[in-house]
Amino acid sequence: MIEMMIEQRRSSLGGGLEVGRVLPFARRRMVGPFIFFDHMGPLDLAAGVDRSVDVRPHPHIGLSTVTYLFSGEIMHRDSLGTEQAIRPQEVNWMTAGRGITHSERFEKARAVGDHLHGIQAWVALPLGDEETAPSFSHHDGDDLPHWNANGVHGQVIAGDAYGLRAAARTHSPLFYVHLDLEAGARAEIPAQYRERALYIAQGAVEIDGVRYTAGRMLVLGPDVSWFRAVEPTTAMVLGGEPVGERFLFWNFVSSSKERLAEAAADWQAGRMKLPDADHDEFIPLPATDPAPPPMS
């Protein structure tokens, strides 16, 4: 059965950039270790787009961010000195641990225009790794195993699924997979994890005779083992083992409210290093706790 259906909540970030927030949700904060899930676009960005659409430097603790694009390009810069463009079917995996700052900019769009469409997710780190050293890795090609069979093209973004394993280092058992399905194709859903969900990015699917359309995350009960595409469909399947309760403040995730307050104070006092190429601007700490930012 479907335990819960979560509809994305569309919102404008200004500058024409629009996203749909799925997680966290009031009645479902997490699925496995996934604590944040945003659907970016689809959106056409014209050449010369204003810098107001860029995501200026901001901080994270206690999580890994996962950026995955269906189309478009984003330039990532962080306080470790990383500068890495991400393109479709690639993965930027950034582990914040005890603290990192980064920016994400639409430099290709500014130069020649672009069509942006993708997913931003956060994965909460388990208790023993919340204060691990920050790191960044970029993955493409053989790092992201894929297959084609019976009208389904799949790519493993992270973790273990379908007998395959992606290269990004994860800190707890999880899976995250991109599936493109032809109309009528049927896809299995990994069964070995305690919590699982299906997000429909484009198209529509059927489970137990019920049709679900794009922009919805289906939190799956243990008896759901497959779904069928009723039209050409792009879907994400994800989940894993729970890591325990987590608190959020702005960009920070932690098992401790005190640690969130400490991170907020560090950012406000300028104690967190900015990316070298982005040292002249940053996003200020909000006066009150907002919803987490749509871009990670």
Rank of each mutant, 00 (worst) to 15 (best):
P88H: 02
T288A: 11
H117F: 13
R259P: 06
T67E: 06
R87P: 01
I157D: 05
D276M: 12
S135N: 12
I119V: 15
D280I: 02
D266I: 07
T132S: 12
E188H: 13
R10T: 15
M40W: 15
L220V: 08
A121T: 07
A166Y: 01
E281F: 12
P222N: 06
A109V: 11
L220N: 10
H76S: 02
A265C: 05
A166W: 01
L125H: 09
A201C: 07
A261G: 14
Q89Y: 10
S11Y: 11
Q84S: 11
V224D: 03
L248Y: 07
R98Q: 13
H279T: 14
G215Y: 00
A201Y: 05
L45F: 13
E73T: 13
L274M: 09
P275N: 02
E83K: 13
H138S: 06
E262I: 08
G184E: 02
D38L: 09
Y212R: 00
A149R: 15
G62Q: 03
H146V: 08
D223A: 12
L274P: 13
T213Q: 10
R271C: 09
L164D: 05
M30W: 10
S137F: 05
D78G: 11
L144R: 03
G118A: 07
S71C: 01
P145C: 07
R211K: 11
S225V: 15
A197I: 04
D280M: 02
Y199L: 02
T67Q: 03
G14T: 08
W267F: 07
F37I: 05
L45Y: 02
G41H: 00
Q202N: 14
L13E: 08
V91C: 00
Q8I: 10
L260F: 01
N251W: 03
G240K: 01
L13P: 04
W122D: 11
P173R: 07
V66G: 00
L164M: 15
H139Y: 13
I283E: 11
V152S: 04
N251V: 11
P293R: 07
V19L: 04
M295L: 15
H178F: 05
L80G: 05
L13T: 04
A26V: 14
A187W: 02
P42G: 08
L125D: 04
V230C: 01
G32S: 06
W93Q: 03
D280K: 05
G128K: 12
H139G: 05
F37T: 04
S79R: 08
A201I: 01
S64F: 06
Q84W: 10
D54E: 05
Q155C: 11
A291D: 14
V205G: 02
A96D: 09
P293G: 09
G99Q: 07
W93S: 02
L127C: 09
Q268D: 14
F247I: 01
A47C: 06
R21V: 06
R56E: 13
R110I: 05
L179D: 03
N150P: 03
S135L: 09
V91M: 01
L63N: 06
I35Y: 07
I200C: 00
V219H: 08
F249M: 09
D142R: 15
H39W: 01
Q120S: 09
F227V: 06
M40L: 15
M217S: 08
D140M: 13
A287W: 11
A46S: 13
L23G: 04
E195D: 12
R211H: 12
